[in-house]
Amino acid sequence: MKHRYLACFLAPSVLLAIATTPALAQDTSPAAQIEAFSLEAGRAADAEAGKAFFLASHSGGKPDTPSCTTCHTMDPTKGGQARTGKPIEPMASSVNPARFTDSAKITKWFRRNCNSVLGRECTAGEKADVLAWLNSL
């Protein structure tokens, strides 16, 4: 009897706590993002193209950041390092499940990093491709 009462009061509290805490981020998933970018691009995501794009040296951006690999290294399953010396968590969602689960972060970092590396925003197709590759490793 005692336990049933406790459960009645505690279960909703615990559920509420769970429901309220992660509501701030974690509003999307890698698959949902890939689908959204593909839809916007009007074509399917191409992981191989994303790999080539990520590993390539680009021009048109800022001189200190010619490639995604400048900070993220050639292996997205490993951590990288910002130019400031600060570690960057791995980009591959298989080793870092928190990746690509916060739409505001995805928007912010694609905007910043595409502009730093390419001197322009990335297209929806490029974003779909890169995410498809990072989500396939």
Binding site: K62, R111, R112, N115
Partner: peptide, 12 residues
């Protein structure tokens, strides 16, 4: 911020 010490650090 779009030109923040060699990188784009823009915010909304």
């Amino acid at each position: 911020l779009p030109n923040h010490f060699g990188e784009d650090a823009s915010l909304d």
